[in-house]
Simulated assay, not measured.
Amino acid sequence: MSKRTSTAIVPAAASSLTLAVPAVGNLDAYISAVNRLPMLTAERESELARNFRERQDLDAARELVLSHLRLVVSVARQYLGYGLPHADLIQEGNIGLMKAVKRFDPERGVRLVSFALHWIKAEIHEYILKNWRMVKVATTKAQRKLFFNLRSMKTGSGTLSAGEVDAIARELNVREKDVVEMETRLSGKDLALEAQTDDGEEQYSPGAWLAAPQADPTQVIEARQRDRLQGEGLARALEALDPRSRRIIETRWLRDEAEGGTLTLHELAAEFGVSAERIRQIEAKALQKMKGQLASYV
């Protein structure tokens, strides 16, 4: 959707919906038009959602989408600082809205506006990541998290102080050097840092950068299982080992640089007065025993 083109939106890949907004002259007219569309009561929204889920009533889906177009406009406005056209941001957000309508379940007791918000943001995020060349170096989850939060967390327009870097790193659970690096990238957004083309561009799903991961039951269950495995399960598995085996596993696998780093087979062989091959055998047996202990936590 460009500034001067029709605002009819029919993204076939998003869903089976056919949404036709009357063509208008420009973006301002489009925004004015969607702001005049009536909002739905909770009762009407539930009725339409049930009609769509149970009978695939496309007219009901269309009304749900139309009544929330103003939400997309509002969300898209928050991302104007990335230098991308407002009209394009709105169109991507509209695709996210239609995906949300397709998946919306009125029986969960949540209004569509709340459910659709992260789907709208997810589509806009993906569009920015694919089209803003500076972001093509932000390939990890931590870097994407920094990219979409760093600007709002800065208290001023200048360079971050050491204290601000530390505070941001703690809040986002990332390394301080990642904060400094991302600030440098963002402040130099007019420079092309790499010559990467769109060929082979990595594809990201909306669940990868959801603003509220706790809203996804699958992620909640996986996170709980992972935490239990890493905490209680690992502790019990280590307790089941004899002192020598536990020492070998801890120093070979569980120590970080602050604790002196991991030890080699030869270093442990010298410590226990046996061959390196014997240490390897003890390690393999201990790992196998721990695997059995951890099986009940998976």
Rank of each mutant, 00 (worst) to 15 (best):
Y79T: 03
L80T: 15
Y82V: 06
G83E: 11
L84K: 13
L84R: 14
P85R: 07
H86Y: 15
A87N: 12
D88S: 15
D88C: 10
L89H: 00
I90G: 01
I90W: 00
Q91V: 01
Q91T: 08
Q91L: 04
E92F: 10
E92N: 11
E92R: 09
E92V: 02
E92K: 09
E92W: 05
E92G: 03
G93R: 07
G93E: 14
N94A: 15
I95Y: 00
G96M: 05
L97I: 07
M98V: 13
M98K: 10
M98G: 12
M98A: 15
M98W: 04
K99Y: 05
A100S: 14
K102T: 06
K102E: 11
R103I: 04
R103V: 05
R103N: 15
F104P: 10
F104I: 06
F104R: 07
D105M: 06
D105I: 08
D105K: 08
D105R: 12
P106L: 04
E107Y: 07
R108F: 07
R108S: 12
R108M: 12
V110M: 11
R111D: 10
R111N: 10
R111K: 15
L112T: 14
L112P: 13
L112G: 11
V113G: 03
V113F: 08
V113Y: 08
V113A: 11
S114Y: 12
F115I: 06
F115M: 10
A116P: 01
A116T: 00
A116E: 00
H118C: 10
H118I: 08
H118W: 11
W119I: 02
W119Q: 05
I120E: 09
K121A: 06
A122R: 03
A122S: 15
E123R: 13
E123G: 10
E123T: 11
E123Q: 12
I124L: 08
I124D: 05
I124C: 05
H125Y: 13
H125M: 08
H125F: 09
H125E: 09
H125Q: 13
E126T: 03
E126K: 03
Y127W: 09
Y127K: 05
Y127N: 03
Y127F: 13
Y127S: 07
L129N: 07
K130A: 08
N131D: 06
N131M: 08
N131T: 12
R133W: 10
V135S: 09
V135F: 01
K136H: 13
K136V: 10
K136C: 11
V137A: 11
V137P: 00
A138R: 04
T139V: 04
T140D: 14
A142P: 00
Q143C: 05
Q143G: 09
R144I: 03
R144S: 04
K145T: 05
K145N: 07
K145G: 01
L146V: 00
L146S: 01
F147Q: 00
F148C: 01
F148K: 03
N149I: 00
L150E: 04
L150P: 04
L150K: 06
R151Y: 06
R151V: 10
S152G: 13
S152F: 05
S152H: 08
M153P: 02
M153I: 03
K154W: 07
K154A: 14
K154R: 15
T155I: 14
T155L: 14
S157D: 09
S157K: 09
S157V: 06
S157N: 07
G158W: 01
G158F: 02
G158C: 03
